[in-house]
Each structure stands twice: as C-alpha cells, then as structure tokens.
Design a protein around this nucleic acid. Structure first.
Lengths: 135, 135
DNA sequence: CCCGGGCATGAGAACCATTCTCACACGTCC
DNA sequence: GGACGTGTGAGAATGGTTCTCATGCCCGGG
C-alpha cells in the first residue's frame, strides 16, 4: 500500500536529450516545439518518443503541463513542490509562485458545497517586462 | 471608440435550440455531447453549427469554456459577472463561486515580477456529495 | 564480457476534436 | 413579396496526439 514502485525507467539517449533541453529552457513549450529544436541541434528523436518521454516525466512529477487556449499541451521543467505559474503570454517565460491562501480558500469553498477530493488549478497570465518593452 | 457593435446575430432554430439545451443543463458539456443530445431529442442540428453557435455564445459572454484534461472544450451557460468554478469531476455539476482575494493577489504577484495585462484562471475540481454517496 | 528478455524507439497510420468549404436555405430589412 | 447576406450542413481537411509493430538497445544474469 506504499507509493507505486518505480516502473524502472531506462536511461536512453532520447530521454536524456528531452530532459536536458527542458532544463535549458525556462518557459512552457509544446511537444512539437521541443521536437523541432531537438531535430535542429542534431539530436534526432522521433516525435512519438518525445511525447512518451514527456508523459513519463509528467508522471514522475519532474515536469508540469499546461493547456493553451487552442488545446495544445505545453511542458516545462518544474520543482516538485506544489506551486502555481505566472506565465508570459508572449514569450512563455514562467515564474513559479506559491499562494498559501488559495489552498485554504479552495478547501473551504469546496466543503461548503459538499465537495470532496478537492484539487485546484490556478494560473496567471500576463506580459513580462521584456516583452512589454519591445512593443 | 465605444464597444464593438453587435454583429446582428440572426435568431435561428438551431441557435435557439443550443442555448435552450444549455439552460436546462447545469454542468460543463462538450460540443460533441450537446450535439448528440440535440440529435436524440429530434432537434437535428449539424455538428459544425453547434460549434459555431457555441463560439458565438462565448463571444457574447453568455457561455463559459473549460478545457478538460484531454484537451476537449466543455461549455456551460454562466452568469456574465466574473467568477470561478467548483466542478464535480464525476458528473460535471458546477457551482459558480467568487473569490475577491485572489484577484488582488494575482495583481500583486504579477506586479512584483514586472508582468502587465494580467489575467488569471482558477478552477476547483472535486467530487460532489451526490457522486461521493453512490460509490 | 557475452546473452537474452523486454522495454524503448521511430515512421507512418490511426484517431478525434475542431475548423473549413461551398452550395443551398432562410431570416431580415425594405 | 423579394433581394441580400448570413446561417446551415455534409463531408473534407486540419493538426495535435496516440497507436502499431517491427526493430533496437539497455541492463541484469551468467
């Protein structure tokens, strides 16, 4: 009844490349985007493999996912502790932020309406200083 | 420089049917789902038309959209004032809730990091009392 | 160091929600 | 009532994501 045992992920060139690329970038990127960048730099990796690697990283809690307005998934290397995001809608640059108050608020509101197993999702979008300056 | 004038939406059987169905339901439903229900009850409406009608309603602020985990869009008749949602992840039943504190919090955090044109999105998911009882 | 089982990979097909196309229908205004 | 122009609908097109399956390679055991 403990945590699920690790499914023994194999260490392959492809998975290493995906994680390394995510470590370099500091914003949310789509799988297609990551795949293109890997291809450009010569690290040939199949698109399907990129998706599988990202899925595995998400399952392991090393990466966060976000859905864009148009429904595409965007991925980013994130810290494993609970946090929210402040995302630049122009360049994708992201800052992790914590908000203790909203945690309690969500729990209280849910309880008031009889909801259990509560989860919440909070993201803030804006234009970062750099992007605002150059327009 | 005033608000954009209304594009003069025509009142058709199809649009009326879509809005009427949304008024009956009190949870987020996908376009596919709504299309199937309309078809069942005899109100034949094309799938493309359902999408167009929903898009128009969203533009008019009469309907809210939410992206499911798998990326599908879900729609719900909502009040025009700013609010967040408490959604049952089992049956889709939804309660509109307000959270003034988070509005100020978002603005402050964004300002601290130099972000402008701030928007935020906050949704709470859980299992409603009814669904929790029957399992 | 060598083998073998089995997960990982990759090219392309399959999937599926959503949007587009375009000829035709019908609301709206005169 | 009639013309104009938007709305409709069936099916094709789009595009992100997942699946298929034959082949590749990681890794533990001998």
């Amino acid at each position: 009844m403990s945590a699920a045992e690790v499914p023994a992920r194999r260490q392959t060139r492809q998975r290493t490349a995906v994680l390394a690329l995510l470590d370099e970038l500091d914003g949310f990127r789509t799988a297609q985007d990551l795949h293109a960048q890997l291809r450009e730099r010569g690290d040939g990796v199949g698109l399907a493999t990129v998706y599988r690697a990202l899925q595995a990283l998400v399952d392991d809690g090393l990466v966060d996912v976000l859905r864009s307005e148009v429904g595409e998934a965007a991925y980013r290397r994130c810290s494993p502790v609970h946090h929210h995001h402040l995302v630049c809608r122009s360049c994708g640059r992201t800052v992790e932020v914590a908000d203790p108050p909203v945690e309690r608020w969500a729990a209280r509101v849910a309880a008031e309406h009889g909801f259990a197993d509560v989860q919440h999702q909070l993201e803030v979008f804006g234009t970062c200083a750099a992007c605002a300056a150059q327009r």
